[in-house]
Design a protein around this nucleic acid. Sequence first.
DNA 1: TATTCTTGCTTAAACGTTTAATCAGAGCAT
DNA 2: ATGCTCTGATTAAACGTTTAAGCAAGAATA
Lengths: 356, 356
Amino acid sequence: MSAIAAALGVSAATVSNALSGKGRVSPELIEKVRAKASELGYVPSLTARALRTGRTGVLGLVLPDIANPLFPQIAQAIENAASNAGYGVLIADSRGDIAAQTEAIGRLLERGVDGMVIVPRRGTRIADVGCPVAVIDTPSTPGNTVSADHWDGGSQMGRHLAELGHRKVLLIGTSASSNVQNDRIGGLKAGLGAQVECDTMWIEKVEAVSGEGCPLGLADKARLGFTAFAAVSDLSALRALTELQRAGIGVPETVSVTGFDDLIWSAVVTPALTTVRMDMATIADLAIAALIRAIEPEGEAENGAEEVSTGNVISETDRVPMQLIVRQSTAAPHAGRTPNLHAPTPNKPTAGEITS
Amino acid sequence: MSAIAAALGVSAATVSNALSGKGRVSPELIEKVRAKASELGYVPSLTARALRTGRTGVLGLVLPDIANPLFPQIAQAIENAASNAGYGVLIADSRGDIAAQTEAIGRLLERGVDGMVIVPRRGTRIADVGCPVAVIDTPSTPGNTVSADHWDGGSQMGRHLAELGHRKVLLIGTSASSNVQNDRIGGLKAGLGAQVECDTMWIEKVEAVSGEGCPLGLADKARLGFTAFAAVSDLSALRALTELQRAGIGVPETVSVTGFDDLIWSAVVTPALTTVRMDMATIADLAIAALIRAIEPEGEAENGAEEVSTGNVISETDRVPMQLIVRQSTAAPHAGRTPNLHAPTPNKPTAGEITS
DNA sequence: TATTCTTGCTTAAACGTTTAATCAGAGCAT
DNA sequence: ATGCTCTGATTAAACGTTTAAGCAAGAATA
């Protein structure tokens, strides 16, 4: 920067003003500075700027257990939204216990992040950490900033199954202590309606008895008359699908299987999974927007309160709708009259739904 | 920091020296400074330090397509290794084309990263970007810093299948232009040996003809006498497994299916996938270590060359072994005499192999 | 014509470290 | 006693920005 100033015979401050458009600089000079800057390949030192302004232009991203297959979607969406807003994203993995989460948050703070996005571990409540925080969890969690409307997604899926004619469905969750999963289950029940009989299986409980990775006994459930298995995550859906197939039960002609989240494999397995997708791009945009609103001094806020608020930020809307994606793993029950075991049932698009 | 100095009646420089152990400070004073520092809850400003030293303590992580399900493993391992070494990790997603990758690298440079880890897009050669770079790709790629020994992994898997008695196996890859996949395929062929007949199917080519997500026609292949399907990624293995199951072909009693990478679902599906795992923790440690060696001024290097090298760094070893994980999706061919369709074949641990 | 306002720029301080250079005093040998 | 070295601290500059304050000259106002 001083090189530009010297080359043009002006002061460094003027160059700064010219480039930022802040002070009073003549239009011609601004042009000359711009030209010289790009001529010299000038890149501002964000470090120095950070030191002076106290803002680093970096956001932190804290993720619960990183093994979570949703992670790529989240990280990508957040990184994209942040980088569009001119921010960098520092990741921190709170793998392990709550202590690790706290420690990860601490590391981010030391690095001087301007704010952070936290996808909290189950049952964690984020204390005021000293910088703006956007929490992505579920609308029913207090302190939530923005998230997918898991309940709504469940209800869409429930309606889909009810409309197909299913009257006895098994809901499959992993952990009863997850807010997200409980919301999804609640939505499913509501969507299925009162006349549909349903039962809930928590995989964690089954595994506590029979060991990790044990069979879930879904074939028996099918024999008991369950015609649909609605898992609350694609991973569980995949587990259900393969277990049923292995037991010789046809999907979807004998039973239907559905998942949640539209993870990478959902479209690839046979039959492709009917699932529900969250709009992470929108969620990330809202979270980042809320964060930035808290970070950057608002034009109007000349009335004293120039302080950056340090708690959980709030968004305009706290829930964004999910999107039902109908593929080949769902069909009407008892459709097995003419099962074609060697080719998946062809795609039957339905108005208003995404089919892929 | 100046608060500490004032409280103890010494200069700020002395405090700095005391805490860093650099200059000449009396042991008692060091203790007093330490005490006062923690009493006042002093946290050094990494921003200021960065400005002064020119090093930010931040590494960049550039990932090819972030939808890649391996991403969580990589990100977790890198973040862990970096944070153990006292570095933060800034992510950059080179989603999309090569231009996006270049642009992502640029953003990281602007933010002043001290070095970066790049998992390059297929066919990309990383130009000298102006900071140390660790490339994680495959040993056969020029410029590779460290990676899993994909060829060795393939060869382990090949031997496993050959020992089980398979004599005709179909190798399944996604894209013929991937170095990683070609290495894996090469290893597989070598491990299978000359007396095993094998054919290679590239999914991209099949889909170019029949459309994305089309059936791969594996049932026909089974009828042609293939008794094993060795995919070069777990995603393809999953695709193969479900397609075969759906066609009524028993895995593993009729045909075996194997994958690569031990992704999250591999242990969860029925039958659980036999696969090969890379030791990302070690790879990440080596990559970060190599990077740091290039970044931090070596004690011996008093001989002029104090410059930080700006090219691809090299590691002590460029390949770390993969680990065969035998689960239930592989068995001897024609073992279908006594198939138990309703329960997966029980785990049969083999010496020297991991079974889970 | 004298005063104030506005414009366009410069000066200087500040952000919180690190580090080279300096310096006062103590111990020691001459 | 005088010069030398070693120790433990201090001073001051520097990193590259931003920004409040100052200032000279021209424009507008009285």
